[in-house]
Design a protein around this nucleic acid. Structure first.
Lengths: 332, 332
DNA sequence: TTGAAAGCGCTAACAA
DNA sequence: TTGTTAGCGCTTTCAA
């Protein structure tokens, strides 16, 4: 910038004004400065600018995701990116892999880079470590899972209701023995979906058969084994509710291996690519990561724009998509 | 930092030394400074640090991707993240959506934030605009598509050879009328795959029937329509080679609608989730985004570590995965 | 081993 | 309308 000023024979401040399109610079000087800047391939240093600037904004936000390689996280990121782009804000992202330490570390790395805000899909059970940043004025929006020991905005899926609707769908077709395959109970959303399953049973005056409930399945393989075991039991289920993507796919593999994919009903929580092209097509309770991401980003920017209202929680509804597996009736 | 110094009753420089773990500070002072830092919830400002620091490194890199929501981009990001994480480097990412203007804009935004390096899946046809940054010392690694009008490192898929192998696989089963469904010819990789298709035909002393070749298909829907048209022709193909994910899926939908999914052979370029669970399972030429991302990141960091050797191009091989659709023979 | 002074590239506040 | 001076939070250089 100094070089530009020298070449244009003006002061530093004039260059700054031209670069930032501040009013009150004569057209002649503006042109001279722009020519000089172009000639020197001048790229203004936003980090230096934000250091000095009164608002200290860096036009940068941070995203803590489960795993950027999984479709839910990737859609979320894209939705946030689209909102951010409109404001010239760029985003850092990092994967947590359900690791609470990694969550703290990455939050620290982002904070040290002076991001303007944080969007967090929390991995750990305690977000109070973020309290000091929050009090220092860093807006934080939680996504998919609510924060613990911290009062902050959140955008969540209606997990309990979604699971309830999914299981009720099965019950309506006459199923009475509906199995539940769930993720790690340490994950809030998994617990909520489990509860939704129980709600639906209770709504039909049924109680859960412990032999038909399997929690703590975190991979497709674990889910497949669990489903195989379940179907090999004395009184196998006539329908399965799978609480998560990978679990659903494990259940499909198990049913295929047993040749039961057209006999045993299945509803999965969370939609996945090509679910409609499978045979039979898979009925799911779909989440809406694009909406969740958009709302989260909008909430964050509203805070950055000065909104000081109490922390809000937005619940994004799910949608049941009947495609085939969920509409298989129980054997006569 | 000033506050920490005041509280610990030492100079600014001593705090700086402790924070950066520079040697030569007495244990007594180190402890005092650490206590003060902790007490004040001090988070060092990396942007200010990098501004003053001799090497000017920000421990930040930028990624320009096709679309972070698509699985290829997401896997790439994750692979890069894993390499970067080991060095305490975090990454910005942005989606280009095949928009050359967006590519320039985002590269500019990242440059203005003084990233240490750039990994680029180029959207535009000319990357010479990056020359000045490169000459100013910014390492840039291209991924998936080579740079144009710029000499830089690149990590690419062997598109032409991959397509050749895929089409040859079909020819070996006796097919003579193999259709080609391709993406926009403006995309380098699409053109290379097209050429690989022609190579394979030539290798079998066949010439392409123009009626069986459809380029410029960019969405699943376009591909589906094209495939339907193709199959409705006077002399329909007995096999299809699809040059890309979405095109493959469009072709599958078309074949399903016609009830031909078990009759017409299909090989797709680029693997996708659940390809093995479809009926019939889909044979693909798989790319390896995780390896590509890892190699790209390693190349970038080698440059950051001072490697000044001439620009390199790494070709990552593809792998044919026979699953079913590619092994359907032509009708007798 | 510790610290004082200068300055990275930029903008705020004020002056001319 | 333009410029000067100070200083954002940190590290470098050099001196004590």
């Amino acid at each position: 910038m100094r070089d530009v000023a020298a070449l244009a024979r003006v002061s530093l401040k004039t260059v700054s004004r031209v670069v930032n399109r501040e009013p009150g610079v004569s057209p002649a000087l503006t042109a001279r400065v722009e020519r000089a800047a172009h000639q020197l391939d001048f790229v203004p240093d936003l980090t230096a600018s934000s250091l000095r600037r009164a608002d200290r904004q860096s036009a940068t936000i941070g995203l803590l995701l489960k795993n950027i390689a999984n479709p839910f996280s990737a859609s979320l990121y894209r939705a946030v990116e689209d909102v951010a782009r409109a404001r010239g804000v760029v985003a850092f992202a990092g994967s947590l892999d359900e690791d609470a330490d990694r969550e703290r570390d990455l939050a620290g790395l982002f904070a040290a880079r002076r991001v303007d805000g944080l969007i967090v899909v929390p991995a750990g059970k305690d977000q109070s470590y973020l309290q000091k940043e929050q009090q220092a004025g860093l807006p934080i929006v939680f996504v998919d899972r609510p924060p613990s020991f911290l009062d902050a905005d959140a955008v969540l899926t209606d997990n309990r209701e979604g699971a309830r609707v999914g299981v009720r769908h099965l019950l309506r077709f006459g199923h009475r023995r509906v199995a539940y395959l769930g993720d790690l109970l340490t994950i809030t959303t998994a617990r909520e979906r489990h509860d939704g399953y129980l709600d639906a049973l209770a709504g039909a005056r049924l109680t859960a058969d412990p032999d038909l409930v399997r929690d703590d399945l975190h991979t497709s393989d674990e889910a497949e084994s669990a489903a195989l075991e379940l179907m090999g039991g004395a009184l196998p289920p006539t329908a399965i509710f799978a609480s998560q993507n990978l679990v659903t796919i494990g259940a499909i593999r198990a049913l295929r291996r047993l040749g039961l994919q057209h006999r045993v009903a299945l509803v999965g929580f969370d939609d996945f690519l090509l679910a409609d092209l499978l045979e039979p097509a898979v009925t799911v309770v779909a989440q809406d990561p694009a909406t969740i991401g958009r709302v989260a980003a909008e909430t964050l920017f509203r805070r950055l724009d000065g909104d000081r209202s109490p922390a809000s929680t937005v619940i994004v509804p799910t949608r049941l998509i009947p495609r085939g597996t969920g509409e298989i009736p129980p054997p006569a």
